[in-house]
Design a protein around this nucleic acid. Structure first.
Lengths: 156, 156
DNA sequence: GTCAGTGCAAACTTTTTGCAACTAC
DNA sequence: GTAGTTGCAAAAAGTTTGCACTGAC
């Protein structure tokens, strides 16, 4: 119950942030944009355009074109409400407000992506003084073999 | 002179490794494959398929199809002689034998990619005990604004 | 009323695939 | 000789773009 309430609070909060963002940039506050933002903040973990497109139609009952999804994601990324990843061939996105920095584990066998937190590592990386470079954020992808695939390999 | 000699030594060494790889996997040792490997090991920094294609024709005087480049890169990556990155829309590749792990700085403004070394950070990441995951390698991408773009922004 | 935003389809870019010709073994 | 490789062109996959229509302001 507390979890759900928290989630609602976050969804309200990002809506506010987005409104502010749209207002200052003189962009229009269309229903599509809010529906997309809200859908994204119900998704845990990563998603790509295609799965977002399907979810919008099935879960949100709000049909939007792929072009609008791409357009809106550009805004959301700029508003720092979403981050974009390039794990494989397709771009992956994920909500990032109030999510905390996390690191990614990518299985080179099955392609599955999972996450892990490590505050110490995060601190180390963020504290790095980089020469002539103004750091804004970072991505750490650790590649290897996940437990599931490891078992499969051993069976062979 | 020492640098050039070293480079020749590396180019010979990777050729040996590749031969061994091809032999044990029962793949054929085609001239295309060796020409591609050798070209790659003359390139410093990152490259994509298109620029490799052009280099092969212009510098190596060895025309290969794009399909062969893609095929060969799969082998070279598997042989651990090349690593693949997904910075933007196109896949980027780079030689990795004897290169030492390095981290990447990516300018979100102009897209320029540069590198930095940090042995301590590397150690930290490699030493991480990850639950049910057999780590093989990792990529760290730090995003921000490079000095060049920073100056341009300030001028406006 | 105006112009930013949307949907659609076409275009574009990058990568993969099918197939005939070639060649390493 | 034969099966793995290559080159080519077509197809696929993901993303961007042009344009007419819509609706936020």
């Amino acid at each position: 119950m507390a979890f759900r309430a928290d989630n609602m609070v976050v969804r309200e909060k990002v809506k506010q942030i987005f409104t502010e963002y749209l207002t200052t940039r003189k962009h229009r506050k269309t229903p599509e944009r809010y529906a997309i933002l809200d859908m994204i903040y119900t998704i845990n973990g990563h998603f790509d355009i295609e799965s977002l497109y399907v979810l919008m139609e099935k879960k949100a009952k709000f049909r939007v074109s792929r072009a609008t999804l791409y357009n809106t994601l550009v805004l959301l990324i700029d508003a720092r409400l979403v981050i974009k990843h390039q794990f494989g061939t397709t771009s992956q996105y994920e909500k990032c407000y109030n999510q905390g920095t996390h690191h990614h584990l990518i299985c080179t066998q099955c392609g599955e992506v999972s996450e892990f937190h490590d505050a110490l590592l995060q601190q180390d990386i963020e504290a790095k003084k980089l020469p002539r470079f103004k750091q804004t954020h970072y991505s750490l992808y650790v590649y290897g073999i996940c437990a599931k695939c490891e078992r499969l390999i051993k069976k062979k």
